[in-house]
Design a protein around this nucleic acid. Structure first.
Lengths: 249, 249
DNA sequence: AGCATACGTGTAAATTTTGCACAAAAAAAA
DNA sequence: TTTTTTTTGTGCAAAATTTACACGTATGCT
């Protein structure tokens, strides 16, 4: 199927969506000491945007977010949390959408459903960077990771949405054990610490951090890691889900 | 104007609202050692509900919430905070609306805008109980305060919404200084403490509570209170807004 | 076998929180 | 005016937590 046919299909799908409501996902990943966000780049217009989409009439906003997440990352069972709903009537310039569509040969009228006002429900997702293959959608040709502190200008109020998501994550990570979702299934204490340092943007004392984490009783020691380095290899930990559930409930 | 004409006006207003989006307000007040919520009781059907409404096409959800708040309480400049958006496709039984309208002589078809699916954005408000005169809307004949732990069954998912609002308030009050909004402009340390004890649902040590509050540097001592009792009257405090702004920023 | 490395734990100092006690204050009563 | 009564406001020590640093130890390489 040609790209423009996909887009026609999408535009025809308008009536199946719940009007006025969209969902945007701030997908966080952790890589090389940086907290990353997954962004899409539109074809031709080269504008950047958060992965987002619309909500089917019999679908919850959370399900819509999960669907979008799956389409963009190929990962299911993602840690997902709603953080804010952006309900301003003027969330920015919708010309981008018009231009994007025009660049594909669709000239939308002012009344077209895609150019109406949308409230967007923001979800942030924490994913294992190594498991994710950023997948562009039909409007974008690339999905790529950006340092959350060094994002390009985004369409609409998406920069604001990213900022709010980061703020929420920083407030959350300290008293709710969500950080593990950003690491692979097993990890060293060092990796965990540098994740926390990156998210909170401050140095932590190794010794105390380790004690605190171990005392939570949610880390399971797996095995030694073979590093090939001339020193003692670190333990590798796995995060114990049952214990976490108790704490978060 | 007769009630049913008001209702007709309301029903005709459908096209002016943003489709699929509503706003519900959990209005908290503090009275007689109880945390209260303002609830409406529908005429005839006697069902209870949160004050809520719809969003005009050029209005933000926050503005809509403020408007509803003003209509129900007669108070402006209310402390208002968005806490969650309820985006399930099945948020409960919409028969109540149909029945309510039927009781006013309007037989709504299944396709009527009022009976469609709505996402609702939840806001909680903190108001000075003594300043508020609960005002019913056109569907309800009474607005009344209920102990948040002793509410009647509410329509749709409104009980759930109240629970979530309370949860948010409890998490917030400890590290964000929002409690003052629930008291009158001046208050004694005792009143402030019993507010905290009620919201957090636990006893606090008077001496330490007082120290903590005073050390925040946001309380301004006003004057002695004449109680008519045979003992030392307490100081009366006023909450100093500028100092708070610094802390919350 | 010994060394370099950085991991894991022990411990003391500093700070904050908790619990309780008591004096000061002010209105009413004598 | 003096005493009585009650509750406020502050002081202080014990307990708990956080912070900072030091040291012993396991491991792979030389």
């Amino acid at each position: 199927m040609l790209p423009s046919e996909n887009i026609k299909d999408f535009l025809d799908q308008g009536p199946e969506y719940l009007p006025s409501v969209s969902v945007d996902c701030v997908i966080f990943g952790f890589h090389e000491q940086q907290l990353k966000v997954l962004l899409l780049e539109f074809k031709k217009t080269k504008a950047h945007a958060l992965p987002g989409g619309f909500v089917f009439k019999n679908e919850s906003t959370a399900e819509a977010a999960k669907r979008i997440l799956w389409e963009r990352t190929g990962v299911k069972d993602i840690y997902l949390e709603q953080f804010y709903t952006f309900g301003e009537p003027n969330r920015g310039n919708w010309d981008v959408h018009k231009a994007t569509m025009a660049s594909h040969g669709f000239d939308l009228t002012k009344e077209h459903w895609l150019l109406q006002r949308f409230i967007t429900v923001g979800y942030y997702a924490l994913v294992d960077f190594s498991k994710v293959k950023p997948t562009p959608d039909i409007f974008s040709d690339v999905g790529d990771w950006y340092d959350v502190h060094d994002t390009p200008p985004l369409i609409l109020d998406h920069n604001h949405i990213v900022a709010k998501a980061l703020e929420t994550l920083q407030l959350t990570i300290d008293h709710k054990l969500v950080g593990f979702n950003l690491l692979s299934e097993t990890f060293t204490m060092n990796e965990l610490q540098s994740l926390y340092e990156t998210v909170l943007d401050k140095k932590l004392l190794r010794a105390n951090f380790q004690r605190k984490m171990l005392n939570l009783g949610i880390l399971e020691r797996v095995k030694k890691k073979f590093t090939g380095k001339a020193h003692k290899p670190p333990f590798v930990y796995r995060f114990n889900a049952e214990a976490l559930d108790k704490q978060n409930s």
